[in-house]
Amino acid sequence: MRGRALMGRAALVALPLLGILVWYLVDVIARPPAWMLPSPQAVASTLWTEHDRLWFHAQATIGQALLGLGLALVVGLAIAVLISASRAADRAIYPWVVASQAVPILAVAPIIAVWLDYGAAQVTVAFIICVFPVIVTGVDGLRSTDPALGRVARTLGASRMWVWRRVTLPAALPALFSGLRMAAVFAVTGAVVAEYVGADRGLGYLTEISTSQFETQVAFAAIAWLAVIGIALFAAVSGLERLALPHRRHSVRPAWRTRRGLASAASSALGDADAEPLAARRRQG
């Protein structure tokens, strides 16, 4: 088991290592000029020496991506609820949501940059890219509920609102999280695309400027940052999903899911051995 896990870990880093090795060999053998292809060492040292500059621009991109993603979540979910709840909205809105994806965002971004201030334009483009997967997976999720679940709850006295909040919405979460994971990665792309066409900061802006100034190693360093940001957002959404859907990974409710469990987890952290939610409840009952 342990050996397998270690092998898995090793395989995970093997691919990027291989990529860097090829990059290194190309650099050593073909000796391209640094403005065309900087060496891995040069990029690594740039990551270190230019850390302040990179971090300044990274903050801008992260902020725009997160804002766009957050807006897309709120607005996309609201639209998904509307579409799944009303036939009229389904007919009137959904086709346009799909059709809007036929318009290439690269073509629209410059116009948005003309209309909006620096910053707002980036958030808007990130939002436009992210909102689509949120709407589509939200609608699918909200429609995927097994109707029997809500029906039984209704016969036992639950209100329509209860069924929506406690049955329909939770049943939509797995699909919605798939959409959110996609959206998390798209958000970074959206912000960067908009930085190309009009911005005074951000990793996309930095990439463009440093390429035109033959500081290619800085552009490479910025791209490395972008990759890390995308992966981190993806991982964060996956982590949230794991917290929100404990029944997918656990047979028994984990201690942190109960209010008393939280208390007992805290007390066990302070040295109290008994942190089992069941036992806690027994003592109460």
Binding site: R154, T155, L156, R166, L245, H247
Partner: peptide, 29 residues
């Protein structure tokens, strides 16, 4: 609706709720 409690042929339990929470949801809504 709500006047007669139905136990369906398929159990129709909520997968994301524990056994206790599935029962408790019919006790206090």
């Amino acid at each position: 609706l709500g006047g007669l409690a139905l136990m369906p042929q398929r159990d129709a339990l909520l997968p994301w709720r524990t056994a206790l929470d599935n029962v408790a949801c019919s006790v206090g809504w």
